[in-house]
Design a protein around this nucleic acid. Structure first.
Lengths: 185, 185
DNA sequence: GTCTATAATTCGATAGAC
DNA sequence: GTCTATCGAATTATAGAC
């Protein structure tokens, strides 16, 4: 008598979503097929359609997420750059939704629009809260994104050997100061 | 009597290659179809197959190119960063092969391998020629690539509004010093 | 050299039985 | 709620006529 409506379906929904994130992260939007996602989840492809309607809505559900940006006002200003790159390194290596979004956003306009929305809704406000000159915030946020996404692109997607080989400590030492200058330079 | 063998075919080959670059740049590898490329070139899809064998070899032919990196030894060291970002901005806006490679490299392993090869063959040697400590060159080249590709990604592919709105002069002022530090910092 | 016709797959999506 | 069967469209690639 504890559960009412979603009798046995929530587990299936969750399995679909997890498999979808994996496939979108690995193959991008066009090569990730509903059939392969269903196979990974151990269910019938028709179930994916039943629960999510079509491929586009499935991606929208799988790509919903939060950057979990730290509150910069609680961090010494001198550490902002290093803390941010460290945060994103951890985030990229522990949530494949990041890679799903980037891989899909490069060839799918809806996914690119999703990335622009996340950027505007999460990065901008984080910087506005601690900005001296609000007028420069969009540019600074854009430069920040360019370095962070570029590093992730080279390291996790293109696999450029020297970028893959950089240790987390090295990455923080090299990229921290770059972000620092973009934020308060 | 001047031309012998390639009677009327070279113009067709060139038209296919130009159309292929446009389509791969705009749609990425999987969504760019041989049919659409042939239609753009005003010829039959079967001709594309005849000349290039298959889609993979067509992409390989279309993605052959040269970064045209300047010789840093002929430039004052203090200007390296600004000159490099200015060079890449010009390159990105005047050769869609750059975008074809990046868009395709994100979802196609062969294209990613091509990018790694171009990086190793062109960026590395350019820096080695002027390096104080050769041991640090690969890391420096990788960091350079991460910022340049990240800026291009945000500006030309994802279309993040603040990055699109940055003027060429602003981009040089902001990113030049970053590259400078990656090169000689 | 060029194009028609089509083979062989594969995909997203639907209808309907159980 | 789950799965079988299948449709209709699109793709790469091939065979062969002209």
């Amino acid at each position: 008598m504890s559960e009412d409506k979603p009798r046995r379906s929530e587990a299936t929904r969750a399995a679909i979503l997890m498999a979808a994130r994996e496939r979108f992260a690995k193959d991008g939007y066009e090569r990730a097929t509903i059939r392969s996602i269903a196979a990974d989840a151990g269910i019938d492809p028709a179930m994916v359609m039943r629960y999510y309607g079509n491929k586009e809505r499935l991606f929208a559900a799988a790509a919903e997420f939060d950057l979990r940006l730290p509150d910069l006002s609680a961090i010494p200003q001198a550490e902002w750059g290093e803390r941010l790159i460290a945060h994103f390194l951890w985030r990229w290596e522990n949530d494949e939704t990041m890679m799903a979004l980037l891989r899909a956003g490069v060839t799918n306009e809806a996914a690119a629009e999703r990335m622009r929305t996340i950027f505007a809704a999460q990065v901008g406000p984080t910087l506005f809260k601690v900005a001296d000159d609000p007028a420069t915030v969009p540019t600074r946020a854009g430069l920040l994104a360019s370095q962070i996404l570029g590093f992730a692109l080279c390291r996790y997607i293109l696999g450029l050997p020297p970028v893959v080989d950089i240790s987390a400590e090295e990455a923080i030492r090299w990229i921290g100061p770059t972000l620092q200058r973009y934020l308060i330079g």
